[in-house]
Computed example of a mutant assay.
Amino acid sequence: MSAHVGIVLVSHSAELAAGLRLLVQQIGSDAVPIATAAGTDDGRIGTSYDLVLTAIKDADRGGGVLVLPDLGSSVLTTRTVLEDHPRPDVVIVDAPFVEGAVAAVVAAASGADLHTVANSAEEARHVRKL
């Protein structure tokens, strides 16, 4: 079996990212590497270039890495990291943070490839709650 796609959750809030990580770990599988890059280097609300770069390395097990930012500067910071360190096996997705993370982890746990995991995350935008 090939390596699972890794997931990186990029958030302004360490608490938000940690909570989402706990949720998706319970839904997914221990086989899916999930890393967070949340808050600033000194623990404040915000995003950190270095934390994003480190989280990508931590989530990489050879199956590619999907990066899911929450909003605003987390998107900009992630894009900057990916521009400075381009890799064809690392993608940023435009997906809802919670629903996209759940869909991505479920797809990754099933052994899906990076393209399929990214599509699953992005398609979560269209799932109605009511």
Rank of each mutant, 00 (worst) to 15 (best):
A95Y: 13
P86E: 08
S11E: 11
L71F: 11
A17E: 06
A108P: 08
T77G: 03
A107D: 00
A59F: 04
E99M: 14
A121E: 11
R21I: 07
D89M: 05
D84E: 14
P86R: 09
H115A: 15
H85S: 11
E123Y: 12
A95F: 05
D50E: 08
D70T: 05
V32D: 04
V93P: 12
L68A: 03
A14M: 02
L114P: 06
E83D: 15
A38M: 05
D70V: 04
A124V: 04
L71P: 03
V67E: 12
A55G: 09
V90E: 11
P69D: 00
E123H: 15
S11D: 08
E99W: 05
D60R: 03
D30Q: 09
A101N: 07
G62A: 09
T77A: 10
D60C: 04
A103N: 06
I45F: 03
V24Y: 10
A37R: 04
L53A: 11
L16V: 15
V106Q: 12
P88K: 10
D58H: 10
A95H: 12
D113V: 09
G62M: 04
A37Y: 08
L71E: 00
T78P: 08
V81A: 10
K57A: 15
V91L: 10
I34N: 04
S11K: 09
V102R: 06
N119L: 14
A124S: 14
G100P: 10
A112G: 03
D70F: 04
T77Q: 01
G46M: 03
T47C: 11
P86S: 10
P69F: 07
L53H: 00
L53G: 05
L76A: 13
L22C: 08
L20W: 03
A118M: 08
V81T: 06
D113M: 04
S48P: 01
Q26Y: 01
P33V: 13
R21E: 07
T78V: 10
I45P: 00
A35G: 06
T77S: 08
A31L: 13
R61H: 15
V98T: 12
V75F: 07
D94F: 09
H85L: 11
G28A: 12
A17N: 00
D50G: 08
A95W: 09
G111W: 12
L82M: 13
V65D: 11
V93I: 05
D89V: 11
V98H: 01
G62Q: 06
V105H: 14
D70E: 06
R79I: 06
H115G: 14
R44M: 02
A109K: 14
S11Q: 07
Q25E: 15
P88L: 12
R87C: 14
V98Q: 02
I34Y: 11
G19V: 13
G100H: 06
V65R: 04
D89N: 07
V91C: 02
I27W: 08
D41V: 07
A101I: 09
T54L: 14
T116I: 14
V81M: 14
V90M: 05
V90F: 03
E83L: 07
D70K: 03
V105Y: 12
G63R: 00
V75E: 07
A14F: 01
A59H: 10
G100W: 14
G64D: 05
P96S: 11
A31W: 02
D30L: 08
G46H: 00
T36I: 15
L82N: 08
A104N: 15
G111M: 08
G63A: 12
V117C: 02
S74D: 13
G72R: 10
V91Q: 14
